[in-house]
Amino acid sequence: MQQETKRGLGLIAPPFFYAVLLMAGPLLAIVVFSFWTQDYLTVDRTPTIANYVEAFGDPIYRAIMGRTLWISGLVTLITVLLAFPVAYFVSFHVDPSRKSLWLFLITIPFWTSYLLRIFLWKVILGYNGVLNSILSYINVPLEAVGNATGILWMQEGLSAPLYSASAVVLTLSHAFAPFAILPIFVALEKIDRSLLEAARDLGETAVTAFIRVTLPLAAPGIVAALLIVFIPTVGDYVTPAQVGGPGGLMIANMIQTQFLGLNNAPMGATLAVIAMLIVTVIALATVWLARRLSGVR
């Protein structure tokens, strides 16, 4: 018993201390750093909350934070909505022996060249882009498609379609789709199929059985999917930088600018800490809400 405990502690020690040294330590450091200030290249180590005052007071930062939350929230909702039917299809309608092949097909794009995938959306959506060149080739102006579908950036014309928050939302939804499918799929797989038969036997229709049995049981997977999409999108840098334009920049772009462009690292640290706090609060709130909602059990 004593010996087993020692062995377990001995094994966990290297990965644990690695995480402490390279994650917990630096996170603490960035918090400390956010209370310092920088004037050109000299760092003033007097603790002050000036950065936080500025971050919450300056309309530019507030706008960026607001936009970040709005875009991430929208991306999360869209991605999970798009992902659920796919996860449902693979779990309920695909032959068990071929499920892992389907999952493999769905996950492949997620693992391949993130940077280029984002860039290709720029190619597709941009001025002189694929979408536009196809449309002009078949003589349909983008505005017409926009008017027909009600998609705002298309209506506004070709001059600006790419550089907008909508393009960021579309691109991010594409990038994180596989990430949302996996947890929902896992939750759906765990559902005992005889529960659905029991529901049908007790008088539910296919639709009401789905609403009263499948959906509540899939809830943990849906919550996991929401978080797993939301958290990285809040911190995403590449997509807004590539397809966002000035109207689509998010907090990560601002952090990068503070660190590498404006030489105001403490301000960058402050924004990073705020981003981290927002993510943590929203994640905890989501989990808490999910627990409350499923508290009937």
Partner: peptide
Amino acid sequence: AAMGLVMIPLVLPEIIVATSLLVVVVQF
């Protein structure tokens, strides 16, 4: 707790990992 800590990078935005390490390495 130990396992939770080791798994945290999975749900930490990469920009946070990047900036926090940058601060430690360069500034500290």
